[in-house]
Write a protein that binds this DNA or RNA. Sequence first.
DNA 1: TAGGATGCCTACTGGACGGTATGCGTCCGC
DNA 2: GCGGACGCATACCGTCCAGTAGGCATCCTA
Lengths: 203, 203
Amino acid sequence: MARQARALATRQAVLVAAAEVFDERGYAAATMSEILDRAGVTKGALYFHFRSKEELALAVIEGQGVFISGWTPASDSPVQNLIDLGYAFARALQTDPLVRGSIRLTIEHGSFTQPQLAAYQGWMDTVRELLEHAREAGDLHPGVDLTAAAGVITGAVTGIQLSSQVLADRQDLVQRLSDLWTLLLPGLVQPHALARLSVAERA
Amino acid sequence: MARQARALATRQAVLVAAAEVFDERGYAAATMSEILDRAGVTKGALYFHFRSKEELALAVIEGQGVFISGWTPASDSPVQNLIDLGYAFARALQTDPLVRGSIRLTIEHGSFTQPQLAAYQGWMDTVRELLEHAREAGDLHPGVDLTAAAGVITGAVTGIQLSSQVLADRQDLVQRLSDLWTLLLPGLVQPHALARLSVAERA
DNA sequence: TAGGATGCCTACTGGACGGTATGCGTCCGC
DNA sequence: GCGGACGCATACCGTCCAGTAGGCATCCTA
């Protein structure tokens, strides 16, 4: 058991190091050597836990799923939950290497075709669900197409995140998210619901 | 002169092939061999025109600048021009390999650090300028922060484009842009200006 | 029509990369 | 207290890749 704990620790070290390198360099430019160095592990250890570079990348992408499933809505307002989810995601991007890495791998299409489609779809489904609840609560404008709105929101958040990463190393991500909601909410929710929302980040 | 024309043709063939491969595979995963094959050119020819892979990539990125400088506003409404610019960009993404390739290289940070920053900034400046004109025309809500709005719009368009690429090979890009404006404009422009705008694509 | 420049071709090189083979220490079950 | 599995270390291999060297044809100029 103590032995297994040690194994789990090296596996985790490899996973985190891989996520970091994938995040910084992308899949193709990331080298196993750098992952090895950063994890403080040898090749044999790595290939004992992961059979190939691709399997390692897929394992990193799983980290994203963990984040989604670990998040629970805190408010009774669906739209507020949507906003909060965005900020939770932003914070995870700033702190959790696994989320950072999985995002880059997800955005980088072509390396492996299926998983990132599923990841995108997962986010869109979550957003769509929150929007449906908002509609039932009577918060949304009547004309809003929920599927279209879910696509716009996920896409916009993705892009905001990306431009923030390129321009400011994600330092201003929270501010930019707040800007996004300020512009987006008037076209989405009705005035009476809008008044009850907090656009800024909430603890 | 006839000789120079031939040289120019091979240079262009290399550039287009490189843009395609960079678009499909990304910088690191793109190989010179594939570019060579697709261009129908030998290594010597390529390295006569471009001294390295990186220089080739930078040349592809230039194509984006050509697109920006080649576009001219057609409407007397600044916001309408903003919308139209988005659609022009979308069309270019669907048809022009150089624009496609340069976008992927721009989004893919880390390979070379400076140029994509400039590209982003160029877009944001253009958007900001149009927003300033819109403010002078009295079309915008008074409270709108122009810099923040420009950041949100460029980021959102980037993300919309990306998710459309991953999910639908950019087939639904125009539709998604229309969805974006539908949600975004109410928070940006005043009702009287909103009524005069055409959210859909215009010929 | 000589001769240099332009534009391109082919064969090659050195290095890095992902992955493997094999071996060795350590701990756990019996 | 011992045998086997677990967990890892190291040396190595084949492949592929960006880039180079040097030659050669075609054209432009004089």
